[in-house]
Amino acid sequence: MFFDPSLSRNRINKLCTTVAGVFATIAVLPLLLVLLYVLWNGGRLISFQLFTQLPPAPGMEGGGIGNAILGTLIVTAIATLIALPVGVGGGIYLSEYSRSGWFAQAVRFSNDVLAGVPSIISGVFVYGLIVATRVFFNQSYSAMAGGIALAVLMLPTVIKTTDEGLKLVPQELRWGAYGVGASRFVTITRVILPAAFTPIATGAVLAIARAAGETAPLIFTALFSPFWPEGIFNPIATMSVLIFNFAIMPYEAQNALAWTASFVLVVMILAANLLARWIARAARP
C-alpha cells in the first residue's frame, strides 16, 4: 500500500526521470548560452548613434550599423512581398482547389524537398539566375536579388503552413458558406481564409524571422555596402553579412559592431517569434 523506493520499478523510474532531465538541460543550454553571450558582448555597446550612423572606415572609432539595420528591413520586406502572395496562393491551391490530385502531391513533395535545401544553395541559385546574368537594369549584386534569395527560403514554410492551416478549417464551415449560396471564391476569401488567419500569420512571421537572419544567400546576392541603401537595384548592407564581414576584421571597432549587430539581430528575431506567439494566442473571433 505504501510507496517503497527500493523496489526495482521505482528505482528505474527515478533513474529514467533523472537521465531525461539531464538531456533536456543539455538541449536548452546552447540557446541560453548564445543568448547570454551575445547579450554580454553586444548589449553593453547599445547606444542611439548605433541606429543612425554608418560603420566607421577601417581603423576609425565609433560609428553605427544604421545602414545594415535598414538594409535587413528592406531585403526582408522584398522577400516577404514576394513569398507571401505566392506562398499563400500556392497553399490555397493545394488545400482548396486540388486536394489530392497527382499535381498537388507533386507540389507538396517538391515543397518539402525545397524546405530542406541548404540556404547557400538558394543563394547560388539566385546568383546564377539574376546576379551573373544582370537581368535587372544590368545590375549585378542588388537588394532585389537578396530579397528573391530569401523569398526562395521562405516559400516552403509559407506554403506548408497555409496548406496545413486551411486543412484545419472544419469542413462544416465550407459547407455552411456554400449552403447560403456563396461561390468558391467568396467562400475562400471571406470565410475560409479569415478562419485560418492565425496559423497562416504565425507561419508567415516565423518564416520572415528565419529569413531575416540568413547570411549565406545574401553573400552571393545582396553583397554589402558601407553606405546607406541606394535603391533596391544596388548592393545593400544587411546585418547578417555585416556580422560575417566585421567579426573577422582585425579592427577593434568593427568587432564590437559585429557583436552589437548580433545582439540587435537576436532581439529582432526574438521579437518576431514573440509576435508570432501573440498572434497565435490573440483572441479568436
Binding site: 455552411g176 447560403v180 449560396g181 478562419a195 473571433p285
Partner: peptide, 16 residues
C-alpha cells in the same frame, strides 16, 4: 443553393 438553403447537423456559424 441560393434558392435551396441548408441547415446542417452540427451548428456551423461563421467565425464572425
Amino acid at each position: 443553393r441560393r434558392r435551396i438553403g441548408m441547415v446542417f447537423q452540427k451548428p456551423n456559424p461563421f467565425p464572425k
